[in-house]
Simulated assay, not measured.
Amino acid sequence: MANIIIAGGGIGGLAAALGIAGHGHRVTVLERRNDFTELGAGIQLGPNAFHALDLLGVGAQVRSRAVYIDELRFMDGTTGERVASMPLTGEYRARFGNPYAVVQRSDVYEPLLEGCRAHPLIRLRGTSPVVSYENGGRGPDRVSAVLASGERITGDALIGADGIRSAVRRRLVRDGEPRVSGHTIYRSVIPMELVPEELRWNTVTLWAGPKWHFVHYPIGGGAFLNLAATRDDAAREAVVGKPAARAHVLDEFPELGDTARRLLELGRDWKAWVLCDRDPVDVWTDGRVALLGDAAHPMLQYAAQGACQALEDAVVIADALDCAAEDFVQRLEKYGAERRERTARTQLVAREMGRQLYHPAGEEARARNAMLSGLTAGEMYDKVAWLHGEKLR
């Protein structure tokens, strides 16, 4: 039985803890905040996420909280034209073996947290921000997480699951601050009772326009509508959860068609983020230290795969560490090699989706509409098969 340290108590960190403890190792999760909570609104879960959640033992709990939508719908945001839709029911579920759903982030986080709290091999420690690490702490086969207080927590391996501004990554990769995308996203969650009945669609709907797009879908068992409107505004500085005036948000999307405009106008208590990501990197490990989730491969939201890929990471790293501690270095290198190509492709695809699919104008937008409208459901499934159809075991 080895002792594993995980920096970061988000979705990826807790998922890794649950998976690793399931293989018989002790795990200490170090979270910078006092409480183990998950911020944020809605996220999308593809079949690959449910496959990972099942392997971690919390698939049923997440399923009970999820909203199973009927289709992904792509609309021309200026004309209101329905361009294309990908059905997500019978044939889709049969092909990929799991549903596609939307949830609040807490609907994934809380089952993972409950599982960790109930597991005798997992210790959750708040107010413990990791600022660096030291290989060889208290022996050549050990590693120490260095806390902001100066305290050192020593174990047989350290997993950096501490997000896009990961201190573990800063020490391991040394690639500076995240890349600012130049896109600002405005988010709001409103009670579904405020939405006119004719607009209560059981879909993830995306309205695409020139240098902007607008997405909405139900969450909270259908009790709320998640709104997310993104503007390519060349923002240069990272912003996290800054309150935004309703009038400002509406002014940012003047070209929005009538139906989409009605939905945008329902938003209240808007908050703004400037989206950031990083370039893919080849090196995820340093001896007994490895990166996971946003610390390893932060990506833009446009492929709806950030949480999904972190959950996949958790399963793969847990399986890799199903061994004696003396084999950890080799096994962690194997984990990085197994995950690098897939996550790098997802990062780059997410960037390209913003540029090629969501934000074109004029002739480029018309060409996009023609391409998408010409695809059959089967052809759409073929295009996402590499992403949604991943089976980890």
Rank of each mutant, 00 (worst) to 15 (best):
S106Y: 01
F50K: 03
A307Q: 01
T259H: 06
I164E: 08
I69P: 01
R342G: 14
A314F: 11
R105L: 06
A7Y: 10
A66Q: 00
E341H: 13
D279L: 14
T343E: 02
E312W: 08
A361K: 13
L18N: 11
P218I: 04
S106K: 12
H359I: 00
L311H: 04
N34R: 15
S181Q: 08
G8L: 07
L266C: 03
V29R: 08
E91D: 15
Q104F: 09
R340S: 12
L206G: 01
G176Q: 06
V281A: 14
T89A: 14
Q330I: 03
G336M: 09
H25F: 11
R33I: 00
K391N: 13
P280T: 07
Y109S: 07
T376D: 09
A157W: 11
S144N: 10
L256W: 02
A208T: 15
W273A: 00
E364F: 09
C323L: 05
L199N: 07
P178C: 03
G115H: 02
A385G: 01
S85Q: 13
N369C: 08
G209H: 05
H216T: 01
Y335N: 05
G8I: 05
R105W: 06
I20D: 03
E252H: 03
L113T: 09
G293E: 05
P218V: 04
H359A: 07
T205N: 07
A370G: 13
A367H: 12
Q347D: 04
V240C: 04
P140M: 12
A16N: 11
